[in-house]
Design a protein around this nucleic acid. Structure first.
Length: 589
RNA sequence: GCGCCCAUAGCUCAGGGGACAGAGCAACUGCCUUCUAAGCAGUAGGUCGCAGGUUCAAAUCCUGCUGGGCGCGCCA
């Protein structure tokens, strides 16, 4: 039992804390994005109040209104009775009976019947009209279906990728990249105002950048046939040679005669500029654009690192020892204190990180999200500690770490090592399978699970892989809508009689469409963008079943129109879903 | 040694208190004179790593094991 720790570090819950959600969504947690859900929710709430007479101060947060796993459990289902059972010290089914009796007194019109099932679930069977209304809402929604305003415009800064400017974007960055990008999309969809930021570790004092400059310089000379050694712990990757060639091709040998000191400085700067440019290009290929590329060096130059250190001193969270300045991070749960300023007077990475996070808060964000690779997980505590030490509530800084990505090639794992140069770049993945497959594959696994990217398989399976399965659904729809261009105008679809849609596969498809708002909300709130790929596959599956069973274009004009409306709605939901994933919705395949 | 993550179908993984544990791939059987077969239907496949505990209810939460991955600098 470690409640002490979790009290101290709520930020470590890798999701929006439920308390926050609860403040926004009073009850129950799984309120939906359509009217029916809201009405059902308040109906259940009223019933609980009636039955319990005195309402408990807090209705337990684990009461859910959910979509049951099987259709004979109804359209919606709640665990209310089972949750209340322990409070009331009665068997769940008995509690359910009392609730049911009360509910049947004055059920809202949209409820057809209510049943008690299993251990005490209360299942609601709705009049099918609710699905038709849902389809109409999609058709009339102007692409806004699935969106809501939980965020109420609060500002979120999500920082991700932040690769060091001394190497290309590799497959690990790719993972952080999609997770961050799609999470940003999701948070925007639920009403947050989101900025995406890439932090550049470009501090001029850093030894790694100088080593990088020296490595580039060596390659530059080598390409001219001049003997020059790469530093032993320098960067040996081919990309360094490529950069050197770029420079040589563009500017010739003009750097040969510079003083060593000037040349090193020049090459360090050049190396960095070129590298960042390449990173930006790769990420753009991958569908990721940042609102801001934030330079560490600007913090240093503006004296912000000094200020951050002074702020920590002023708050009494530092002390001097062995000639260094230490942050008393153990006060905030770290297992040891950390150095802020080395005994040679140079601030550590942590010091600029404090300055950076302070700066983020000062720019007015309500919530900061950092997405880090697994090699940084040891820094979660000290960074959170530092943020607290400068006075920011840890709930406002969510750091989460994804697990490693390895490349599986010809059945063998390829380990990435930047300095040795045998890393696998994101560009290689993009060359092999393209943006859509890459993004989708990355998001088929939860972020805290390891990911072996089997390139051969991704390529080989490109005929039957889940991305194409989903995109194919969209292309099929487009094809029919093209054929029906004349009848499928927006106006005629609006007049369609949707009550004709009562084939089993039509109903399943409509139900799936109705789930989107809830899926978006959960994926966002749980920081689980991978939920969306699953939803996309389920939606596509529902569509393909429908397609096989029901012919859309027929002699029956009314039915044709109704099915065209359903098609159009499905197309919209597919577009919204794929759009959130940053995957294209092709019109033909 | 300490910290984080993982262990579920042959393989890769979802599900993270609730109703008979799911999907894709692989295997087997069917379905194209009709809107795209990149599709559909069906069969087979599981002591949810092990042992305790909490609960009306545990794959899910807690504790302890076992096995694996990653990290643990006055590097960034």
């Amino acid at each position: 039992m470690d409640s002490h720790k979790s009290d101290l570090y709520p930020a470590f819950h890798s999701r929006l804390p439920l308390c926050e959600l609860r403040a926004i969504i009073p009850f129950p947690r799984k309120i939906g994005g359509n009217m029916i859900r809201k009405q059902l929710t308040s109906f259940i709430r009223r019933t609980i109040v009636d039955v319990l007479e005195k309402m408990p101060a807090d209705i337990p947060a684990d009461i859910h209104l959910e979509t049951p796993p099987r259709k004979d459990y109804g359209d919606f289902s709640t665990n209310t009775a089972m949750v209340l059972a322990s409070q009331l010290k009665k068997p769940p089914r008995e509690v359910a009976g009392e609730l049911l009796a009360k509910m049947q007194g004055s059920p809202p019109g949209f409820i057809e019947r209510i049943e008690i099932a299993g251990p005490g679930f209360i299942n609601f069977f709705l009049n099918p009209d609710w699905l038709h209304e849902c389809v109409r809402a999609i058709l009339n929604g102007n692409g806004s279906y699935g969106r809501c305003n939980i965020g109420e415009g609060r500002r979120v800064l999500i920082e991700f990728v932040s690769a060091n400017p001394n190497g290309p974007i590799h497959i690990g960055h790719g993972r952080g990249g999609v997770i961050g990008d799609v999470l940003a999309n999701l948070l925007e969809a639920i009403g947050y105002e989101v900025d995406r930021e890439f932090y550049i570790n470009d501090a001029a004092t850093s030894g790694q950048m100088q080593k990088f400059g020296r490595s580039l310089e060596a390659r530059y000379f080598q390409l001219q046939g001049i003997e020059k050694e790469i530093p032993e712990d320098g960067y040996h990757g081919d990309y360094v040679t490529d950069l050197a060639r770029e420079i040589l091709d563009a500017e010739g040998a003009r750097y040969n005669d510079m003083s060593n000191e000037d040349r090193l400085r020049t090459f360090t700067n050049l190396a960095q500029e070129k590298m960042i440019e390449h990173q930006r290009e790769t990420l753009e290929r991958f569908g990721i654009t940042f609102d801001n590329w934030f330079s560490e060096q600007t913090l240093v130059e503006a004296g912000r690192v000094e200020q951050a250190i002074e702020a920590l001193k002023a708050r009494g969270h530092t002390y001097e020892e062995d000639g260094a300045l230490w942050l008393r991070s153990t006060e905030f749960g770290d297992d040891k204190d950390r150095v802020l300023v080395r005994n040679n007077g140079v601030p550590t990475y942590l010091a600029s990180d404090v300055a950076y996070h302070t700066n983020k808060f000062e720019r007015g964000y309500d919530l900061l999200i950092d997405i880090w690779g697994p090699d940084h997980h040891g820094y979660m505590i000290r960074t959170t500690a530092a943020a607290q030490a400068v006075g920011y509530a840890p709930e406002r800084l969510h750091i989460f770490v994804h697990q490693i990505v390895r490349l599986l090639s010809e059945g063998e794992l390829v380990r990435a090592s930047k300095r040795a140069g045998d890393l696998v770049t994101l560009d290689e993945i993009l060359d092999a399978v393209g943006k859509d497959v890459a993004r989708f594959f990355y998001l088929m696994r939860s972020h805290d699970s390891h990911l072996d990217f089997d390139l051969d398989l991704a390529r080989k399976e490109s005929q039957e892989n889940p991305v194409y399965y989903v995109q194919y659904a969209h292309a099929r729809i487009c094809s029919i809508l093209r054929d029906a261009e004349d009848t499928a105008s927006e106006r005629s679809l609006a007049a369609a009689d949707l009550s004709l849609l009562n084939h089993e596969t039509e109903v399943s498809l409509m139900r799936k469409l109705a789930d989107l708002p809830e899926e978006v909300k959960l994926a966002a709130a749980e920081y689980a963008p991978h939920r969306l790929t699953r939803y996309a596959q389920e939606l596509a599956s529902s569509f393909h079943c429908f397609y096989t069973e029901c012919r859309v274009l027929s002699d029956d004009d009314a039915l044709t129109l109704a099915r065209l409306a359903l098609l159009r709605a499905t197309q919209i939901v597919l577009q919204v879903t794929l759009g959130l994933l940053g995957v294209d919705s092709p019109e033909r395949m």
